[in-house]
Structure formats: C-alpha cells, structure tokens
C-alpha cells in the first residue's frame, strides 16, 4: 500500500493555476523525486500534502486515509523539511531538535534521547550545545532535516533540502536520506537538481507549470527518448528543417533543434553505428556528432522544449 497517494491535486491562486491535476504515489522504502524548475508547483504540492494549503481539487491520502478526514493523525505520520531554514537560530542544535520533537508529540525524555541519536547520526554532536546561528550552512541544513525526524516519521516530505550548500554537505545529506529509505521511510523529495533526482530517487515525476508531465524510473523516462542513446549533431541548422529529409522522422525522434544543434534519439532498437552513418549522411555540413546517454535534462527538454535550468 502507498504511504502517500495524491490524486488530481489542484490549486489556483487568482488566475494562476499553480498545481494542475497532479497525481502520484509514494511507497514505503521509496524515494520519489518531484523534479522541476523554480515555480513549477513543487512547494505548493508539498504545502497541500502537509496541510498548509487546502487543495481546490483532488485528494491526499496518507497511509490509506484521507488527510483532511483527520489532519492531526496524518501529521503524526509525516515529517516535513521545508525549503527555508525553519529553525530557531538562537537556540542550540540540541534545543532545536528537542523542541521540534516535543511539537511532534514526543514526551520530554523521548525527545531528549532521540535528539542525542540524531545529533550523532547527523554528525553534530560536537557542536550540539552551540547556537545554530554559529553553524555553517551545511550544518544548519542538517539540523533543519533532523528536526523533522524526531518522531521517526513513516513519510518524509523534503522540499529542496540541499539548496545553497556546498557539494560535500549535499553528499552527506543525500547519504543520510538513502539510509532513511533503507529503514523503510517513504520519501517525497522535491528538487531542481537533475543529479540529485538521478542518483537518489527510485521514481521521478517531472513537473512544470503545475502539471506532472511524466513519471517513472530513470530508465523508463530515458526510454521515452528511445532507449539509452542520444545523438547530438553540431552543424548549421539555420535554414534547415528535419521534415525536409525523407523518412527522417520515422527513424529518429527530434529532441531539440537549435541553429547550431540537433539532438535526436533513434526510434526502435537500431545499431548505433548505422544511426551514426545515417546522421553523417544528412545534407548538412556536420562539424561534430556526440553519442551520449539521455539525461533527465534531455527528458525535460523533450517534454517542455527547454532546459531545466533555463
């Protein structure tokens, strides 16, 4: 059974439809990545799942029960890590963890014990007594993450938890999240970092302009582009259209075309050398051809016509 099931979630702010009929599920022990650029609707989706916003349409089910039927019960099952550092900077790391543990419903003694465990796990024990305002960005992010874990939530909602930190600190946090997943926690992870989604998530949903454009495992998403090969041709494509090349569209799927580049994926199981030969034979002056594995960015490019970071 899914720990989180989102069905046709919709939210409108005035004339803007921030989230438009979004549906997905997250199972225990799974990290589901919601990948999309800033303003795609990721945070609004998390706000509706965690009860901060009432959806205009659709339903959220947590552990099989409708969220709004008993919000307090659903909130006890989940932990939420917001994008911003929503912690008390004047309090120490330990005080923060204990406070948020108590807010999650733990008794004082349990909160103390769990805080000590988490400080150890997050490698913060040495600085546990210091005020959070004296911590580095990475340490603050770890405290921010830890504050949602005191009550051992079965479902963890992470809203871009690695924004603005150095690569090493990011790797540490990602590793910690993998451990959580191994312990059976269901994780909904929103990000606009492709690498994070590719390396961390079992399944990925691509969201843009409030709509979930595609979802699946990395392999399934790559499959949409025609397997695991992508050809990028560098040439002058200014006054050229692939439609003019007889049968080209039947054999290749055009992912992106600019004045200087043409990215295509072969349709069906074809020998790459044959494909390469055919591409080199196109009626343009080819300067370079690259064969690569399609990335999530290519998937995003194919779905939206633009790169994720544009």
């Amino acid at each position: 059974m899914s720990l989180l099931k989102v069905q046709g979630l919709t939210k409108t702010f005035g004339a803007i439809r921030a989230v438009d009929s979004v549906s997905f599920e997250v199972k225990p022990g799974e990290i589901y990545g919601l990948l999309g650029p800033n303003g795609a609707g990721k945070t609004t989706t998390i706000a509706m799942i965690s009860g901060l916003l009432r959806p205009d349409g659709g339903e959220v089910f947590v552990a099989g029960a409708s969220f709004w039927a008993d919000p307090q019960k659903a909130k006890r099952i989940m932990g939420v890590v917001p994008q911003e550092l929503a912690i008390y900077e004047e309090l120490s790391g330990r005080e923060n963890l204990e406070f948020w543990g108590r807010m999650a419903g733990l008794a004082a003694r349990d909160a103390k014990t769990r805080a000590a465990e988490l400080l150890e796990a997050l490698v913060l024990t040495e600085r546990a007594q210091d005020a959070v305002k004296t911590y580095s960005g990475g340490m603050k992010r770890r405290v921010n993450l830890g504050c949602a874990l005191l009550h051992k939530p079965k479902l963890l909602l992470l809203d871009e938890p690695t924004v603005g930190i150095d690569p090493q600190a990011r790797l540490n946090i990602l590793e910690f999240i993998r451990q959580l997943r191994a312990s059976g926690t269901a994780v909904l992870y929103t990000t606009h970092y492709l690498e994070e989604a590719e390396t961390l998530c079992q399944r990925i949903g691509i969201i843009d302009h409030g709509r979930l454009l595609a979802e699946g495992t990395l392999g399934e998403l790559q499959e949409r582009l025609g397997g695991d090969r992508l050809f990028v041709i560098e040439a002058d494509f200014k006054n050229v259209s692939p439609d003019a090349w007889a049968g080209f569209r039947e054999r290749f799927r055009v992912i992106q075309k600019t004045d200087q580049h043409l990215a295509v994926a072969a349709i069906g199981a074809r020998d790459p050398s044959e494909c390469l030969k055919e591409l080199l034979g196109l009626p343009v002056r080819v300067e370079n051809v690259t064969l690569k594995r399609p990335s999530l960015n290519d998937v995003f490019l194919q779905l939206t016509g633009r790169k994720l970071r544009e």
Binding site: S50, G51, L52, Q72, K73, K75, R76, M78, V80, P82, Q83, E84, L85, A86, I87, Y88, W100, M103, A104, G105, C147
Partner: peptide
C-alpha cells in the same frame, strides 16, 4: 518570515 510558523503548522498541533 523564516518559515517557523509554517513548520509548526505541519506538526500535529492545532
């Protein structure tokens, strides 16, 4: 401003 109130509202607290 820093999101603490929002975070509190995600806790099982009325």
């Amino acid at each position: 401003r820093n999101g603490v109130i929002k975070r509190l509202m995600t806790c099982p607290i009325t």
